[in-house]
């Protein structure tokens, strides 16, 4: 176990390094720079001045080494978009906002999706099943920003029950959480249904049934647990997505989270921010996968971590 964990953690370091190189090269390959050009092109001198100010005139290798050196010392630089704070400070300020929203959405989506999926599987091909399928399809095909726009028009503009957006009060959660939860809810429902049906037909459930266990016992003790595996695999990647924020949802509801920076840092060629966000997500994601793999062994003891050849 310790060896396994060590191997995985070493893997995270490798991932961190590869991602940093690839992203560094990619982002510097995008046309344009952090300087602003609008009405009239900047003169060559003015542009050169700008690049020099941020050290962007140096060779890429030098810039990379300098940056990584700083990162290893814990200094992620200053975001071009918000030069009065540090990148780390900005992330520390905005990430908890996104994370709380994402967690709230998960807390809504998971139980509701499970319930819907179980209902659909239990009453396969009944109207419950069809309704659940329709809901799931809707959740996956209607983009969440469209849902968000309509929520605002209905609840804020027409009914005036809620403000159109903002942050700081409990009621500011209602609309963004609803819009955010829809897709993972649909995903959960869909995979739960499929997995349960799958497991129900498998040998060991048949064995269990032949041993005289009741349907409920089978559902709880065998089916659900086994159905968790593909669900975990599919839902796990949703988690970093959700807790790092969603651009459209946050910008529609004026949530001061991390989400918009994933796009605005690319649009603004905010190199320190692009790097920090990607490295942050890289580490976060690697950890989520590590935990997912550990969870596999809990829900399905047949999975062995070491993956030894037999």
């Amino acid at each position: 176990m310790a060896r396994y964990l060590f191997g995985r953690l070493a893997g995270i370091v490798i991932v961190f390094w590869i991602v940093s190189v690839v992203i560094f090269l990619l982002m510097h390959a995008i046309p344009g720079g952090p300087y602003n050009e609008d009405k009239v092109p900047l003169t060559a001198e003015a542009k050169a001045n700008y690049l020099r100010k941020y050290g962007l005139d140096r060779p890429l290798v030098e810039q990379y080494l300098l940056y990584m050196g700083n990162v290893l010392r814990g200094d992620f630089g200053v975001p071009f978009q918000s030069p009065t704070e540090s990148v780390a400070g900005l992330i520390a300020r905005t990430w908890p906002v996104s994370a709380s929203l994402g967690l709230a959405a998960l807390l809504v989506a998971l139980p509701a999706g499970l319930l819907l999926g179980i209902l659909a599987a239990a009453r396969q091909n009944s109207w419950v099943d069809y309704l659940a399928s329709a809901t799931a399809t809707l959740g996956l095909t209607v983009p969440n920003f469209v849902v968000a726009v309509w929520l605002v028009l209905l609840l804020a503009v027409q009914l005036k029950w809620l403000p159109t957006g903002g942050w700081g009060e409990w009621y500011h959660y209602i609309m963004p959480v609803t819009a955010l939860a829809l897709a993972p809810l649909a995903l959960t429902a869909r995979y739960t249904r499929t997995s349960i049906l799958e497991v129900v037909r498998s040998d060991y459930v048949r064995t269990a049934r032949s041993k005289g266990l009741s349907d409920r016992q089978i559902l709880l003790r065998h089916t659900l647990r086994n159905a968790m595996i593909p669900l975990l695999t599919i839902l796990a990647p949703q988690i970093p997505n959700l807790i790092t924020g969603t651009i459209f949802i946050e910008s529609i509801f004026r949530v001061p989270g991390l989400g918009k920076f994933f796009v605005s840092s690319i649009l603004g060629r905010d190199y320190p921010m692009i790097m920090a966000l990607l490295l942050l997500v890289a580490v976060l994601w690697s950890l989520v996968y590590l935990i997912t793999d550990l969870l596999y062994t809990l829900v399905d003891p047949r999975v062995r971590l070491e993956g030894k050849k037999s």
């Binding site: 605002v152 503009v157 159109t164 957006g165 910008s251 529609i252 004026r254």
Partner: peptide, 14 residues
């Protein structure tokens, strides 16, 4: 902060 321009009109109406 009004998020994005599409939300100006709803905020004004509200």
């Amino acid at each position: 902060n009004i998020g994005q321009p599409s939300q100006l009109m709803p905020a004004y109406e509200a």
